[in-house]
Design a protein around this nucleic acid. Structure first.
Length: 575
RNA sequence: GCCAAUGUAGCUCAGUUGGUAGAGCAAUUCACUCGUAAUGAAUAGGUCAGCGGUUCAAAUCCGCUCAUUGGCUCCA
């Protein structure tokens, strides 16, 4: 085993792959092949369109070279020689890359067998030191990441120092596939998307709707308990609203087309903010009533490019768990710290323990004077400190109207999801001319903070499905327990127990099918049920159920009142 | 939107070189009355994504459209 960094191994694997591709398709022109977070890729352009079959061939060629321990050799060239060589080999993409290397920097090439590549390095010493590789998929990618440029063919692969590491990674990928919310959503009958309704528009089935209802109720209760007020606003609004907000100037192509009513144009809302601002402006506001903490589960529609839609994680219609905090400049830091504290609490309730904030700064295209940006950034930084968190910087990642804090949460199998966003906004208070009367009797412009905890209800639900792998905790589960009679002889008893437990407020069902107990258990497990209550002759005689739990396996025969107490306890603990 | 792949029963998938469809699971009915991951039998279920073309003949070949998947770009 080599002691090179994994990224070096992967970068070398990318070169090795390029060498294999060149061997098989001599007309290939290369772009770049870097290591990524969990593998590597290389971008090519050539006549031949790659197929999955080709990946096998390329991988085979790579493995052959790994066995031969082909050395990676470096050489330095003058810019002129490099240019001449690339031109001779018709490597036009590489020529562009060469021209991007700053004057005075060394120009180095790495050779691996017959393949020579403009590259900064470093690499492993020979191909034998690339422990284990696997080619994964073919994709298209724009040269330079610019959609105006021609599209190249990209091969994704991954490499590890050992076969064991590679297998562990592939297993992890399999696990993620099993948890895919689109697959589980269909299997568990949670939601669907219909061609007749339209892409990116989600239909919530009864079970999915129940889970949504439950966490929305929790969300509402927590907001009322933490000083928020809830609001409802319409789904459409006149064009004047979107002209004022700036959406029609900047984002019209992402909005659904307008409808004309009584000679006015109405747009389906892509955001809730303008509506909340109209509520603010419905009368004169005093500093005494600030901060306003206004929240809404607001359903918005955005015309997303068809290629970006992805189940619930990226939809065209979705419900933001939106809130706007309108406050004085003096209040803003405490308000943001409070939003952070509140968010962390909510995430922990759902079993997300690791949460990391990212502080996003001024982007190239922005509004508002830099001094304000600096002050706002300082407020955000202080708020993060007050919340006792360490944050990472996302330079230039802010919205055009202000800096923001994003939270990334880690799920049950360690994947990170970008969820909560807390955004400063200099733009809208000014555009909508929002004011309040200060202590001095004069008009002032308030600060405005946008925040969404879950981001969107749809996206959050998708993340929850994957986090729990479909096995929802009892407080969220649409069915908390299923009673499984051994035979139809116990059916009446089963129904009686079911009625009793429902009286106690639990969500219980009876499996009434004339099937064997083994089949009923199998199906209940497939439904990811937390509790299975088996009833046969002896349970019927004793007034009990034999309890089998997903978490603790066999719990033995328990009295109905004890079962009710146990499940209720789970609900209270939110497990 | 762009590159590529895919679309056959509710679900998962077969379907050879073109000769107009098949399995398992699920569903329904009947029998069985069963002790912790699949009881048996029978029945029903399809404009092969849609439209057009080639052909004596198309699920199969070609074109367009729609949708999905993997990426790219995008995500106010």
């Amino acid at each position: 085993m080599s002691d090179f960094p994994l990224s070096t191994v992967r970068h070398s694997a990318a070169h090795l792959m390029a060498a294999a591709v060149q061997e098989l398709y001599p007309d290939v022109r290369f772009d770049i092949g870097p290591a990524t977070e969990d593998g590597f890729y290389y971008d090519f352009d050539m006549e031949h369109r790659l197929t999955p079959e080709d990946l096998k061939k390329i991988e085979k060629a790579m493995k052959k070279m790994m066995g031969k321990k082909v050395p990676f050799e470096t050489s330095e060239m003058t810019r002129e020689d490099a240019e001449k060589m690339l031109k001779e080999n018709n490597q036009d993409y590489k020529l562009v890359r060469l021209s991007e290397i700053p004057e005075g920097e060394k120009i180095t090439f790495y050779t691996c067998g017959k393949f020579i590549d403009l590259c900064r390095g470093p690499h492993v010493e020979h191909t034998g030191q690339i422990g284990a590789v696997k080619l994964l998929s073919i994709a298209g990618s724009y040269f330079h990441g610019d959609e105006k440029n021609p599209m190249l063919q990209r091969i994704y692969g991954t490499a590890f120092k050992s076969k064991e590491d590679l297998n562990a990674h592939l297993q992890m990928v399999e696990e993620a596939k099993k948890r895919d919310h689109r697959k589980l959503g269909q299997e568990l009958d949670l939601f669907s998307v219909s061609d007749n309704v339209g892409p990116g528009l989600v239909l919530w089935h009864p079970k999915g709707a129940f889970i949504r209802h439950t966490f929305e109720s929790y969300w509402k209760d927590e907001h009322y308990a933490n000083g928020y007020e809830l609001m409802y606003t319409p789904h459409i609004g006149r064009s004047i609203l979107w002209q004022t907000s700036g959406h029609l100037d900047f984002y019209k192509e992402n909005m659904y087309a307008p409808m004309e009513i009584d000679e006015n144009e109405y747009f389906v809302k892509p955001m809730n903010c303008p509506f909340h601002i109209e509520i603010y402006k419905s009368r004169l506001r005093s500093y005494r009533e600030l901060p306003c903490r206004w929240a809404e589960l607001g359903t918005v529609y955005r015309y997303e490019a068809s290629g970006v839609l992805h189940g619930l994680l990226r939809a065209r219609g979705f419900t933001q768990d939106d809130a706007h905090i309108i406050c004085t400049p003096e209040q803003v830091e405490d308000e943001i710290a409070e939003v952070l504290r509140f968010s962390l609490n909510i995430w922990k309730t759902f079993g997300f323990k690791e949460i990391k904030p990212y502080l996003a700064t001024m982007p190239e295209k922005s509004v508002g004077d830099p001094e304000r940006w600096q002050k706002a950034l300082g407020a955000l930084e202080n708020a993060v400190k007050k919340a006792g968190l360490e944050c990472e910087m996302d330079e230039g990642g802010g919205a055009f109207y202000g800096p923001k804090i994003d939270l990334k949460v880690k799920d049950a199998i360690g994947r990170e999801w970008q969820t909560t966003t807390i955004q400063f906004d200099f733009n809208l208070p000014e555009r909508f001319d929002m004011t309040y009367i200060g202590e001095d009797g004069l008009r002032h412009q308030p600060y405005m903070v946008h925040r969404a905890l879950f981001g969107s209800i749809e996206r959050f639900f998708g993340i929850l499905v994957e986090h729990f792998a479909g096995a929802f905790p009892v407080w969220l589960a649409p069915v908390q327990a299923k009673i499984l009679p051994i035979s139809e002889k116990q059916l009446d008893y089963a129904k009686k127990v079911c009625a009793e437990m429902r009286q106690a407020g639990l969500r219980v069902e009876v499996d009434e099918r004339p099937a064997k107990i083994g089949a009923k258990i199998k199906d209940a497990r497939h439904e990811r049920l937390q509790y299975m209550l088996v009833v046969g002759d002896s349970e019927m005689a004793n007034g009990t159920c034999s309890v089998r739990s997903r978490r603790e396996d066999q719990l033995g025969e328990l009295k109905i009142s004890d079962i009710i107490a146990k499940i209720s306890d789970d609900v209270d603990k939110k497990i």
